[in-house]
């Protein structure tokens, strides 16, 4: 079985590097995009196992919108989406929920927390597929 593909959509280079270093221990295949549009294209092209999505990004699509698009597409709907954001207010969580996100990590987040979230969601996926 091939490695699960994880797509990182994040405008800040440092954060992308952080995520890559956090998850890069040979188990996952990692891809990056630095804005919403290219992220959305890569989702459709790559069909990743999981998408890590920054909320506030420059350009036409922000994280919520990309997430909504993924959840609107029947083929992509099962893909877990984790939102990464520096906004931690109640309304922001609600917006994430409305967009259909499966996880929500508030910056600053602990790398360990990120690994936990990713593995939990991927395990759930495997469990679902097995079922």
């Amino acid at each position: 079985m091939s490695k699960p593909i994880i797509l990182i959509v994040e405008d800040q280079q440092d954060i992308r590097k952080l995520i890559r270093m956090t998850l890069d221990f040979g188990t996952f295949e990692l891809h990056e995009a630095d804005n919403g549009e290219s992220g959305w294209h890569m989702v459709r092209g790559l069909k990743p196992s999981l998408v890590l999505l920054d909320v506030m990004m420059p350009g036409a699509l922000d994280g919520y919108q990309v997430c909504s698009k993924i959840k609107a597409e029947p083929q992509l709907r099962a893909t877990p989406v984790v939102l990464l954001t520096a906004r931690g207010q109640e309304t922001d969580f609600a917006a994430g929920k409305a967009a259909g996100a499966d996880g929500y990590l508030t910056k600053p987040f602990s790398p360990l927390q990120l690994i936990d979230t990713v593995e939990r969601l991927l395990e759930g996926l495997v469990g679902q597929n097995a079922a």
Binding site: Q12, D14, I15, L18, M21, T22, M56, T85, A86, R87, G88, Q89, T106, K107, P108, F109, S110, P111, L112
Partner: peptide, 24 residues
């Protein structure tokens, strides 16, 4: 306030993340 919080959290994410990686 919400924007300022966002701007303060973003560098903090790198600082916290990398330092934790270095520690672990």
């Amino acid at each position: 306030l919400s924007t300022a919080a966002h701007e303060l959290r973003t560098p903090m994410a790198s600082i916290m993340g990398f330092s934790e990686l270095l520690l672990r």
